[in-house]
Design a protein around this nucleic acid. Structure first.
Lengths: 119, 119
DNA sequence: CTGTTTCGCTAAGTATACCAAGCACTTGCA
DNA sequence: TGCAAGTGCTTGGTATACTTAGCGAAACAG
């Protein structure tokens, strides 16, 4: 996790949480109690000293009545992988279908790719 | 975050990662290198011994060419299940693929449905 | 057979996310 | 004045996420 750009993301995340908490007119102790975390830890998170784990983030988001996605986006954990890869709609859908075995997935993908080549 | 109900989510997450890794025909060391984590840690994650942090999850998702949302959904970190809808999207993805002829689409859908029935 | 490579895993250590107790400050009410 | 209750923050510790070194089995080469 060597991306130094993320350093800032975490600091901004703290500021974001603090601003949302103040908007909701909650003290640190109040928010901490609702989110089931300790108030010193919340303090440290808001000042960017620590990266909260994903479930803590989700918990805080819930306590602030914010969607988890928004929270993760603010934390820089959802950034859109625009990196021109997946024109693979079919393959991804296949891979993610829980009703197929891996063998069946491979069979379908092989046939699919065969069709693409024969154009 | 002592919610014991989540235990299963993490175990399933490990199985999900392992299955996706095998589908991509990557060894643990290969995936670990791409995702910038150590291979023993990946092993422990796949067996449900540890909860990977959000940025590790994101990194693994990137290495497996899966969207971060899908990963978080599998990890039970997103209350919204919108990301999981792609699981039901095989037929739709097939129909929308402009590179396939109608005959080819029908063939694939027929095989796909056959697999589903044979369970 | 021996040596090499690659596989997944274990063991043991380091780094850090997180908690309980308590400090310094302010506000307000006696 | 004086103390009670609230605020955010510091300290010191525990739990756990994560790493590096290395083991034993399987596969293949010489």
């Amino acid at each position: 996790m060597s991306d130094p750009r993320n350093q800032d993301s975490w600091r901004n995340l703290g500021e974001f949480i603090r601003s949302q908490r103040e908007l909701a007119r909650l003290s640190m102790r109040q928010l901490a109690e609702i989110a089931n975390i300790s108030n010193p830890y919340l303090s440290q998170v808001e000042r960017g000293l620590y990266k909260p784990s994903a479930d803590v983030l989700k918990s805080i988001a819930g306590a602030l009545q914010i969607s988890a996605e928004t929270m993760y986006a603010q934390a820089g954990l959802l950034d859109k992988d625009a990196a021109g890869d997946s024109a693979h709609g079919v393959e991804q859908a296949l891979r993610l279908d829980p009703r197929l075995s891996n063998d069946q997935k491979e069979t379908l993908i092989r046939i699919y790719r065969g069709f693409l080549e024969s154009r």
